[in-house]
Amino acid sequence: MIALPLREMLNIHYRIHTEDKLFLGDKEGYRQGDSIYFTISGENRETILLEQAALSYYLKENDLEMLAVPIPNAAGEWFTNFADNSWMVMQVQHLSKQNGKTKGIQLAELHQTGASFNYEPKSISSYGQWKELWIEKITAFEGRIESNAWETPSEYYRLLMDFLPYLIGISENAIQYLQESEREQRILQSDQGTTTFIRYDGNANQTIIWADQLMYDHPSRDIAEYIRSVFLKNDRQEKIIRFLNDYQTISPLSVFGWRLLYARLLFPIHIFDFIERGFDSPNETELKQMIEIQTDYQKQLRDFYKFSGVDTARWGIPVVNWL
């Protein structure tokens, strides 16, 4: 959205007269006093955004201040029709400074707070649904990759078709591991659903948490996505160990939680995310790099239980031996 319509919409529909423009990352916003306003498109996702709004307000009411929360317009409505689109406005009341807490502790505290939310969202919940969602993802991607390779043949799609059997194979392994783990009875209070992120990589330690990045799921979702981000950067194992130790000072992982965490790391979500972007802008060089990175990723995952201090033999936790 270009600058003038944004400022005009805030003026007309929100009675907010902004002073200057600023950017947070790639997000353009406008300031009025101590508040900064951003817009997001609500087109065809009104229900999702309203559930995310409910989560964000609950977190804010429970002392999590670094949130960009939606605000209603002057008519009391959450969405504003303007410039041929439906818009929601996000407000950041102040840019908070880092509070000195580590990522692990801060994420655990967010999960504890989110677990007390007394309403389970529907549209943004993946709690207990990983198996079905993963099967749907494999089916959809396999069909689209094969269709695109047939309709628009290129070196990118030739390489991707060669890689596809591995992608399907490791995905099916993850689903099988998840299915076996869902029978695990060793659970804790911390295994209930909570507020999580769509893709967590340290967001809870950033200046702002965006409401439209929130969802409802098992806490192992965020833990796995943080570890995945470290694996993909081929960063130090000590970083993961510290994160897990810090997290568990607040909220220890159950055996069930460890198994869900491992299943999610095994499922190659990062590759599906990459391929999804490639549907719009395929890049052969980047695909080759992703395939090479996956080799290192797999090696790190092979040693994950060991360096994390999980005694798989004593706890009776299965491992994937072919990694």
Rank of each mutant, 00 (worst) to 15 (best):
M1C: 06
I2K: 15
L4W: 11
M9H: 11
D20M: 09
L24I: 14
D26G: 07
K27P: 03
E28Q: 07
E28F: 12
Y30S: 04
R31H: 11
Q32D: 06
G33K: 07
S35Y: 02
I36W: 00
Y37K: 01
S41R: 11
G42D: 03
G42H: 01
G42I: 06
N44E: 14
L49D: 06
A54L: 08
Y58N: 01
E61S: 10
E61Y: 13
A68K: 04
N73Y: 05
A75C: 03
E77I: 07
N81I: 14
N81H: 11
F82D: 03
A83N: 13
N85T: 04
S86P: 03
L95T: 04
S96V: 13
K97T: 11
K97M: 10
K97C: 00
K97P: 05
K97Y: 05
N99R: 09
N99F: 08
T102I: 05
Q106V: 07
A108C: 00
A108T: 01
L110C: 04
T113S: 08
S123H: 11
S123D: 13
I124D: 02
I124M: 04
I124F: 10
S126V: 08
Q129F: 02
E132D: 12
L133R: 15
W134G: 00
K137W: 11
I138A: 05
N148F: 04
A149G: 03
A149P: 00
W150D: 12
E151D: 03
E151M: 06
T152W: 01
T152Y: 07
L164H: 06
P165K: 14
P165R: 12
Y166A: 09
L167K: 07
L167I: 12
G169W: 11
N173T: 01
Y177I: 04
Y177P: 03
E180W: 01
E182A: 05
E182H: 10
E184Y: 10
S190H: 09
F197C: 06
I198H: 12
I198K: 11
R199E: 15
D201G: 14
A204F: 08
T207H: 05
T207L: 05
Q213R: 09
Q213Y: 10
L214M: 09
M215S: 10
Y216R: 14
H218E: 07
A224Y: 01
V230I: 13
L232Y: 06
L232T: 12
K233P: 12
K233I: 10
K233G: 07
K233N: 14
Q237N: 10
E238K: 14
K239T: 15
R242P: 04
F243D: 02
I250H: 04
P252A: 13
P252C: 03
L253G: 00
L253I: 06
F256G: 00
W258D: 01
R259Q: 15
A263G: 11
A263F: 12
R264L: 12
L266E: 00
F267E: 00
P268S: 09
F279I: 04
E284I: 02
K288Q: 11
Q289S: 13
I293V: 12
I293W: 10
Q294G: 07
L301V: 07
R302T: 03
K306H: 08
F307T: 06
S308V: 10
G309K: 09
W315H: 12
W315K: 12
I317L: 12
I317W: 05
I317Y: 08
L323Q: 07
